[in-house]
Write a protein that binds this DNA or RNA. Sequence first.
DNA 1: CTGTTAGCGCATTCAA
DNA 2: TTGAATGCGCTAACAG
Lengths: 345, 345
Amino acid sequence: MARSTRPTVYTVAEHARVSVATVSRALAAPHRVSEPTRRRVLDAIDSLGYVPHGGARSLAADSHRAHGLVLPELVGPYYSDLLMGYEREAATGGDSVVIALAGGELDHIASKLLRLAGSVDGIVVMGASALPRHALAAIRDQVPVLGLTGGAAQGLEVIGTQSVESACELTRHLIAHGRTRLAFVGDPALGEDIEGRYRGFCDALGPQAPEPVRVGPSEADGVAVAERMLAGELDVDGLVCANDELALGAMVTLAARGCRVPEDVAVVGWDDVMAARFVRPSLTTVRQPVTELGATAARRLRELIAAARTEQVAATPAPERLTTSVIYRRSCGCASDASNEQEKP
Amino acid sequence: MARSTRPTVYTVAEHARVSVATVSRALAAPHRVSEPTRRRVLDAIDSLGYVPHGGARSLAADSHRAHGLVLPELVGPYYSDLLMGYEREAATGGDSVVIALAGGELDHIASKLLRLAGSVDGIVVMGASALPRHALAAIRDQVPVLGLTGGAAQGLEVIGTQSVESACELTRHLIAHGRTRLAFVGDPALGEDIEGRYRGFCDALGPQAPEPVRVGPSEADGVAVAERMLAGELDVDGLVCANDELALGAMVTLAARGCRVPEDVAVVGWDDVMAARFVRPSLTTVRQPVTELGATAARRLRELIAAARTEQVAATPAPERLTTSVIYRRSCGCASDASNEQEKP
DNA sequence: CTGTTAGCGCATTCAA
DNA sequence: TTGAATGCGCTAACAG
């Protein structure tokens, strides 16, 4: 395990009675080595338990074969799907994924990003708007950087989903079914995705669209909003929430205090978390192709890296925003399905 | 961005009119450099936008300052908390985290693990039992390997939570409240955590404990189990499910078909997913300290790495299994709380 | 406190 | 098809 113990190309070369160059080739370009030689090398490799030193590789080859993935500390429930989509796609391209959470002191995270930039070929940043500009700037002239669901304001190319369209559809739907006092719950300043959702909300309502109810993104914030409603501070008959946690928090609180959902107030959310199917009334929400979102980001970053290596600006055009779909359930008061309907997971 | 462009220690040294050693020191051991010199170096560094090359560093220092984290492809909802706990703790120790998903063909993942082993100082493997033994063996003599929630069967030291105790408590609770025909839903062969839960179930029931209902871990599997019950193939009045997805799938299906929960059948799960609070009846389940689980693993791996470097076997004793807690709600039929109770998130 | 120097392990020329 | 030699960027002796 110690340096002295671990076999290197030299050990392998000696064992297989070839030169180190041949060992290297046998691994990286098998077709450039004769069959018998390659066998000898491969045998030596696994009889010795040889594992190439990643650092040495990236140094010599001037390529880390790794992506950095920067995530905000409080990501919603779809974290795992996103990561899965990302990692799979990255692995397909032979790259590994180094994650970094952007929590903690801003100062501290800047150096964290720099370190990351020294160990990967490119970086995908989710929640870029929360990062200090100078930190982003510093890594951007080291490696290609791609925004995930945000970062356009920082001048990043961004991979995202259609927020505006679905928000607009959702809001129109509520209007069409007679809701006249709608509110958007969530703070557009918290991220470009939320901002887009609010914009879609406004698009549907036109000039008389109300200001958003600016609250955090958690269930507790949803509860607080419901309490304001119950206290008479907020007079609405429909809540378009920036995510399902908010929606669930609000909905359950409302129901528990005698306010009927959807009869008195319609509630809709975003993300289609598992609880949205199980809560009663079931929650109308918007589903995003999260796994694909991750995969798309990985794929695109790979392109950007390749382009950077050949000095080209952009090989192919940036991907479109991914399609989302509104899942109509009962909390918006207009689903036609039976009360006890059970959905396929 | 190209190799020629990127500043190196030499560039910085020249710029600051010091030697490369001083540059290196100014970064790694600031106190070993005089104040004015350090200033010059630091100035040069950020005027040049210098970022150290991670590979070169790990090569020269014989340390990657990185942990590998291997995850099964289908991890439950607590993925994100786990990762958060892990990354935070790793970052605290100055290490970054490289993730690898263990999905895909077994053959392919073996080489993936090997590559990982060449780029990190140690590896934490979750779901080790699903990996081919030879793949595990190969990485184990490269770097320290720690199991997460499983891997004892492969001879790994493992970080985990108390499965047996909570399962036993839960089962006893059901028995105490008059349930006489209990079933354990889930396949103990799928992982040591499930195995432990089944063992606790058996401990509570004694010799007449039934065989487990061996099914997969998904909501759909829970639905299938419920259907078998409704078809009369399974005569039980209590379901101890290996996770919440199973429990939710079963419970909702049962309820939709006229079987009352908890009156006719009690249902309990594991993990305390968000939906467990929102479904009606709310689901009795077991909560694990997931974030802390991740942090504990990171901390322990760091210890193992340190021990390996100094040739010691184990500096400190392995951490205890983390404490879990049963969350009593209504699906087990014995909670005292009101029907419309609303929990704090 | 600072500089000089020698590798770390690998990929990659260039010759043979 | 193979081998010898060079350098990637950095750290860590060692010397001054």
